[in-house]
Write a protein that binds this DNA or RNA. Structure first.
Lengths: 152, 152
DNA sequence: CTAACTGCAAATTCTTTGCATTAGT
DNA sequence: ACTAATGCAAAGAATTTGCAGTTAG
């Protein structure tokens, strides 16, 4: 499995170790498409290995974010969400439509053809201009959903 | 001034009241281009009206977010940032390039020509497809900056 | 007048830290 | 063996809530 392989390598490269908790946490992330909170992940991991604590989940997630393996999102509900980066994920894009009033999140993936094209172009342009090694992206549109829009 | 006008209307429409603190907080947001934290805003507002408390700043920001007048961002440093929505802001776009390792944020606005075009198209398409009243958007690219990229 | 709004202090909630113990390599 | 990693309990920090007094409409 790709992500595991690369994570393993990345860990060693930095002098870090591959442990049971770390394997389990990546496993859980790999098998989920949703935006998981640290606690969600903790519950799932804890189901598999009851000795693993919440602290370790947080510490491992930090590491994964630092290494560019997972995204850390915040949709404004006061708890962070985590999801595998493009490269490792079944999902190549993370585009959201968010209602600022009721906080509904629509995870859309019915892109316009040009949308994908443009993202790659932009990615390349930015990569060159700012000397960045780009690993993924996120796009969110904010507004009022049907219901909330009608409420006023 | 546009934002004030619309906010005023929006408040009344919901049975809310236009108060000194609310005016002051919108004022501060209008006169700033940066990503302000609740505390930043509190300090500025407090400078103008020393009686206004932090709680009110939080409550007002919630309201502004709900009503789609301001964005609430979270860049992962554990404190939310607020900024006027496109329509009201000098800046029409909020595009960021973020280093997942050192957390540097580049606020780029040297867009490709097509980038703007496409965003409007996408906005329209989404608006129709999902019956959303879109007020703004955000786009972020994640990766490793020059320095961090070289560190491994 | 009346209900919405406010400030303060206390309470919550998510996340981080300190430290003694355990476990990769 | 040598250190990194872990779990627990406690600490920390941003945000929220309860409540009695204040103010907009």
């Amino acid at each position: 499995m790709r992500a595991h392989e690369l994570w393993n390598r990345g860990l060693h490269g930095r002098g870090y170790r591959l442990t049971i908790p770390r394997k389990a946490i990546l496993e859980v992330l790999s098998n989920s498409d949703d935006h998981l909170s640290a606690e969600d992940i903790y519950i799932m991991v804890h189901g598999l290995y009851p000795t693993i604590g919440l602290t370790t989940v947080y510490r491992t997630l930090d590491l994964l974010v630092q290494m560019g393996v997972v995204y850390k999102f915040d949709f404004g509900d006061g708890r962070a969400r985590y999801e595998l980066m493009d490269h490792f994920s079944k999902k190549a894009h993370h585009h959201h439509l968010i209602c600022t009033s009721c906080k509904t999140i629509i995870d859309y993936d019915d892109f316009l053809d040009e949308e994908l094209d443009l993202i790659h172009k932009t990615e390349n342009a930015l990569s060159n201009r700012h000397n960045f090694e780009i690993k993924g992206h996120t796009m969110q549109f904010y507004g009022l959903c049907d219901k909330c829009s009608k409420r006023f």
